[in-house]
């Protein structure tokens, strides 16, 4: 069994060599840094949009299809019953209803759902530059998985 290695900050020649090797890998890779920056900026943007649109909804602005005060009539229903009772759209049809405050709220939430794809696109470019084939393949597949999930093709019809 191997122990994961701890490298002390000693002055011995071999330790310094070992430390130099480790410090090279302690450095965060440029693609990881870029990915982290994208996540940071985009996630806070999404949360800010979510907060503003929610305040509009709670304030009664933008003509919601179901006003907050009527929500107790519906929030105990299953998602299928709710869709039937409120004529709620499925898939991306909500985009055509963003003039209503309750659907406008979904913009910030949907944005949070594409943050990872934006990050992965940056990784795709970085791995292409490095010609890192296994990671190009995995990153491409991940983008496809998320895009398929977001596309709305996986749909459960009301039982």
């Amino acid at each position: 069994m191997n122990s994961q290695t701890s490298v002390p900050s000693s002055n011995s020649k071999s330790s310094i060599n070992q430390l130099n090797n480790v410090q090279a890998s302690v450095e965060v890779s440029s693609e990881q840094n870029t990915y982290a920056n994208i996540l940071l900026v985009c996630s806070w943007t999404g949360i800010a949009v979510m907060l503003v649109t929610f305040l509009l909804y709670m304030g009664g602005f933008n003509n919601p299809t179901v006003s907050p005060s009527d929500m107790p009539l519906y929030w105990g229903m299953s998602v299928h019953e709710y869709a039937l009772a409120t004529h709620a759209p499925s898939g991306w049809a909500w985009l055509s209803m963003i003039s209503h405050a309750d659907y406008l709220n979904l913009i910030g939430l949907a944005f949070l759902g594409i943050v990872s794809v934006l990050g992965y696109l940056s990784l795709f470019v970085a791995y292409m530059r490095k010609k890192d084939l296994p990671y190009i393949t995995m990153v491409s597949l991940e983008i496809i998985v998320i895009v398929l999930a977001a596309s709305g093709i996986f749909n459960i019809s009301a039982g």
């Binding site: 649109t53 909804y57 929030w75 759209p89 943050v115 998320i146 999930a149 977001a150």
Partner: peptide
């Protein structure tokens, strides 16, 4: 993210709760 999209597309995300 993937699972969240399935719930969002299905209409199972109510802003007043989320």
């Amino acid at each position: 993210t993937s699972a969240a999209w399935i719930y969002l597309n299905q209409g199972a995300v109510l802003p007043i709760i989320t």
